[in-house]
């Protein structure tokens, strides 16, 4: 194990380490903690210059005010309306593309695979003008499905990479055995491979959920009205309206962070397995 396990060192070093870790964590999360505390600080504290001291009381009404004074509830709902269909769509499409690229040897296999991979790395601006134009022409500007359709297509690149590598690592004998039995290719996909893909599907779902929930660029390019904007774009425009009302900005920020954070803590193992795929041989 590297570095040398702390248990093998002098007791003083062990104690020092056990103190250093939480201290480092505190410093690491200091900006976040500051915002979390500001989100429950009453506005009067800020007016009196009490920015860092203990809040005079816990002002949970800041959160209520955010919902009352802004379309925050609509923004959150919009985010869910974009994110959930995208997760389902991208995972479904990539189960199939991943299966095709992992199981079948055909001449353009690697070419198609690398096209998906390369497309996934492309900078967004090169897609912006035509995708916006297409979305406008389809009458899908300012709709959740306009955003979701684009996200499904784009995320298919990353998901295909993920699924293909996952299926490649499955025992191929299973598929061959099924073929010998005369099972059709579609049934092999459905009854043999798909049940084995559950961990990959779980990992991808949490990852894509987080990516799409946190997307800001496309949210601003493909929507501009509070009725259809996801929370990232909404929060950014609220920030412009709430100048110097940091207690509201902070509360809004915390609210926007809750769903992906909850997702991460609930599905932690899947999340990290998905993120670190390929980090080990």
């Amino acid at each position: 194990m590297f570095p040398r396990p702390i248990e093998q060192t002098a007791p003083a070093t062990q104690l020092l380490y056990k103190i250093a870790v939480p201290v480092a964590l505190l410093l690491w999360l200091l900006p976040l903690l500051g915002v979390a505390i500001t989100s429950v600080r009453p506005a009067s504290d800020l007016a009196q210059g009490n920015y860092f001291g203990v809040p005079s009381r816990l002002a949970f009404e800041n959160y209520r005010d955010v919902f009352v004074n802004s379309p925050m509830a609509a923004y959150m709902l919009n985010s869910f309306k974009v994110t959930i269909p995208t997760v389902i769509g991208a995972v479904a499409l990539s189960c199939m593309t991943g299966f095709a690229l992992a199981v079948y040897q055909f001449r353009s296999n690697l070419l198609v695979f690398f096209m998906f991979v390369a497309g996934n790395f492309v900078p967004f601006p090169i897609l912006m003008v035509p995708v916006r134009d297409l979305t406008l022409q389809l009458g899908m500007y300012n709709t959740w499905y306009g955003l979701a359709l684009f996200h499904v297509a784009f995320q298919t690149g990353f998901c295909t990479l993920f699924m293909r590598n996952f299926i490649k690592a499955l025992p191929f004998e299973l598929i061959e055995a099924a073929r010998v039995e005369g099972v059709s290719e579609v049934k092999i996909f459905w009854h043999v491979v798909l049940p084995l893909m559950r961990p990959a599907i779980a990992a991808l779902s949490v990852l894509i959920f987080t990516f799409i929930w946190n997307d800001f660029f496309w949210a601003t390019v493909l929507s501009n009205s509070p009725a259809s904007q996801p929370i990232t774009a909404g929060l950014s425009s609220l920030n412009g309206q709430w100048i110097a009302q940091w207690h509201l900005v902070s509360a809004g920020s915390i609210l926007a962070a809750v769903p992906p954070v909850a997702m991460f803590f609930l599905m932690q193992r899947h999340f990290i397995a998905g993120l670190t795929l390929g980090a080990v041989k």
Partner: peptide
Amino acid sequence: VISQVVVGLIFSW
């Protein structure tokens, strides 16, 4: 895990 928008607001503060 949190959005870059939120990260941006946190650091602005």
